[in-house]
Amino acid sequence: MDAIELVEVTKRFGATTALDQLTMSVAHGEVHGFLGPNGSGKSTTIRLLLGLLRADSGTVRMLGGDPWGEAPTLHRRLAYVPGDVALWPGLTGGEVIDLLGRLRGGIDTTRRAQLLERFDLDPTKKGTTYSKGNRQKVALVAALASDVELLLLDEPTSGLDPLMEAQFRAVISGERDRGRTVLLSSHILSEVEHLCDRVSIIRAGQIVESGTLAELRHLTRTSVVAELAAPVPEALASAPGVHDAQIEGHRLTCQVDDTELGPVMSRLSALGIRAITSTPPTLEELFLRHYDESA
């Protein structure tokens, strides 16, 4: 049984359809990256998992239960960090951390102290006087100091500086090693590349890609720049799997479908390769391809 399972879930707000037959799953113990442009339905999905919203149709299962009907019981086993953390004006960061921890059913004070130090957070300031990044740290410390199975993180590092982001990565790696499941929605691709075992890409309320990073890369093209011993034959530009070819005498620049990489390489080595660079697709290119289609 997966930690999170959504099957053909639809959620409408009036006339707009936020989630359209969305299907995705997150296995126990994996760090799952959740990517998508703004307004594509990431936060709606997470709010469905929290039982804040009710699906119009489809099945939502989380930690073996129904998030809508059994919300309080399931919530003992998870912690959530919203993208925009709203702290109470009259409560200090420390008070919020303790309150949220107690509401979840307990807080590990040693770990709380470690995390405060690690994230360099002053717990004595009042809610409204924290910056966006520090408000996120308050929610992060509260979430990580509780002993839970599942972490739901909605763009948790969007306000953190690079130093804190590195701390965040280290902490999440530690959580994975301890066997926790993490659903991490993010825009920061390097973060996802570093941390995530699997990735789901959402666009307009539907999952358009899902799999390990290696699997997703297979769907894309490698850019190849080759310097050959002989002039490049024109026919190569129209070979199967070759795109955007530019030929200047002995030099070839092109994109190659990963599935056709082998045959193309054989043809090039038959012509004699003097120099070659091949760049694997970055997640960013993967992304832009999907994001662009939504435009």
Binding site: R47, L50, G51, L52, A71, P72, T73, H75, R76, L78, A79, Y80, P82, D84, V85, A86, W88, L100, L103, R104, G105, A139, L152
Partner: peptide, 15 residues
């Protein structure tokens, strides 16, 4: 309205 309810309802607190 301010998003505080979302935060506390994500804990074991029932509506």
């Amino acid at each position: 309205e301010r998003g505080h309810a979302e935060l506390v309802l994500s804990t074991a607190l029932s509506r």
